[in-house]
């Protein structure tokens, strides 16, 4: 690998794409707010989190240009996601198992 080797070229996205993604994000935002008024029991949380994931996905693919990035950039973005999963998964381990032995925490 040398200095000359530039694997990524600048991909210019049309403004239209940004506007469409922005509009989509606004629709999803409205959906989040709308769902908050419905009483779906535990599904409220699931729907809200799904919408949030969709939003994050849109932002990463378009606003953060991941769609047009090199494989290396994708690996690092994937790592960020994987680490988030580690944090949530191991963190949840505590919350799920807390207080399961009587007389202890």
């Amino acid at each position: 690998m040398t200095t000359e080797q530039h694997s990524t070229t600048h991909h210019v996205m049309p403004v239209r794409t940004y506007l469409i993604v922005f509009a989509l994000l606004m629709v999803l935002l409205a959906a989040t707010i709308g769902v908050a008024f419905l009483h779906l029991g535990p599904f409220n949380r699931i729907v809200a989190l799904t919408i949030a994931l969709a939003k994050a996905g849109l932002i990463m693919t378009y606003f953060m240009h991941l769609r047009y990035s090199s494989k290396l950039a994708l690996v690092f973005a994937g790592m960020g996601f994987f680490w988030l999963v580690i944090m949530l998964l191991i963190g949840m381990g505590d919350y799920i198992a807390r207080g399961t032995i009587p007389g202890t925490f």
Binding site: I86, M87, I90, G93, I96, A97, G99, F105
Partner: peptide
């Protein structure tokens, strides 16, 4: 290094199972 943080919380009220892991 990212998988061990709970060792700072053994007496905090964290689940004992989590503490074990």
């Amino acid at each position: 290094g990212f998988l061990v943080w709970g060792h700072h919380m053994f007496v905090s009220g964290q689940s004992v199972y989590a503490g074990l892991v």
